[in-house]
Computed example of a mutant assay.
Amino acid sequence: MSDKIDAVWPAVPADERMSPAELRVVREYLGLTGEALAAYLGVSSRTVRHWEAGQFAVPDGVRLELEQLEEITARAVDDAVAQLLDVPEPTVLVYRSDEEYRAAQPDTRLPASWHRAVIARAADRVPGLAIDYPQPVS
């Protein structure tokens, strides 16, 4: 499957290739598990584990996909901050599970953990931000 990832991206210069450690740090910074990253990239979770363990080189396309995801994430943080900054007593809801998140955001390919990471980063910039779960549907 990683060949499929590289097929759509140009090659990255050797000195800019992603190391196994960098892959893990970026994945965790984005709030993604190995399984969630694998699903996002369309590869098996075993493949992600192999990349992070250094058993296989991280394909160039993965670095480029993650750079795009970092941009998407930064925009999501900025958008959340912009919506919440001037609100008195700002509150935002986060989701307990992927199912709950996808019910609220059906078009997303990303997991609830990504959304929670976005909100955590926004909370650093929005004083007094309250974070809560939606009320359970009974």
Results as ranks from 00 to 15, higher is better:
Gly54Thr: 14
Ile72Asp: 10
Ala39Phe: 15
Ala57Lys: 15
Ser45Tyr: 06
Ala123Trp: 08
Ser19Asp: 01
Ala14Asp: 11
Met18Arg: 08
Asp15His: 07
Arg24Met: 06
Val126Trp: 07
Leu64Lys: 04
Leu30Pro: 09
Gln135Pro: 00
Pro88Met: 11
Val92Thr: 06
Glu67Ser: 11
Thr108Leu: 12
Glu22Leu: 04
Leu30Lys: 14
Arg75Gln: 13
Ala80Ser: 03
Arg24Gly: 02
Ala112Val: 08
Ala21Ile: 08
Pro136Asn: 14
Val26His: 02
Phe56Thr: 09
Phe56Asp: 08
Ile72Ala: 14
Val48Thr: 07
Pro106Cys: 12
Val48Asp: 03
Leu41Gly: 03
Gly54Met: 14
Val25Trp: 05
Ala103Gly: 04
Gly34Lys: 10
Pro13Cys: 06
Glu100Trp: 08
Ser2Asp: 15
Val81Tyr: 11
Arg75Ser: 09
Asp3Glu: 09
Arg46Leu: 15
Ala122Met: 12
Ile119Leu: 13
Ile131Gln: 01
Ala117Cys: 02
Val77Asp: 03
Leu66Gly: 03
Glu89Asp: 15
Ala38Met: 11
Glu52Met: 05
Leu69Arg: 08
Thr73Gln: 11
Pro136Met: 11
Val12Cys: 06
Leu85Pro: 00
Ala39Cys: 13
Arg27Val: 05
Arg96Pro: 01
Val94Glu: 03
Pro127Thr: 10
Tyr101Ser: 04
Gln83Asp: 14
Leu110Val: 15
Ser97Thr: 14
Ala14Ile: 08
Pro90Ala: 10
Asp6Tyr: 05
Asp78Pro: 00
Thr47Met: 15
Val26Glu: 03
Ala74Trp: 06
Gly42Met: 07
Ala36Ile: 03
Val62Asn: 03
Leu37Arg: 02
Ala103Ser: 12
Ala130Cys: 08
Val43Leu: 02
Glu35His: 04
Val8Asp: 09
Thr108His: 13
Gln55Val: 04
Leu93Asp: 02
Asp79Asn: 09
Leu66Gln: 07
Glu16Ile: 01
Leu37Thr: 06
Arg109Val: 00
Ser97Gln: 07
Asp60Asn: 12
Pro20Thr: 13
Leu32Arg: 01
Glu70His: 03
Glu71Phe: 09
Thr73Cys: 07
Ala80Asp: 00
Val48Phe: 01
Gly128Pro: 00
Arg121His: 12
Gly42Cys: 02
Ala80Ile: 00
Glu99Gly: 11
Gly42Trp: 08
Ser44Ala: 09
Ser19Ala: 11
Tyr133Cys: 02
Ile119Thr: 11
Ser19Trp: 02
Ala7Lys: 13
Ala120Gly: 10
Arg17Cys: 15
Ser138Pro: 00
Val81Leu: 13
Glu100Leu: 12
Pro59Glu: 05
Gln83Met: 10
Arg116Phe: 04
Val137Gln: 15
Thr91Gln: 10
Phe56Arg: 14
Leu110Thr: 14
Tyr133Val: 10
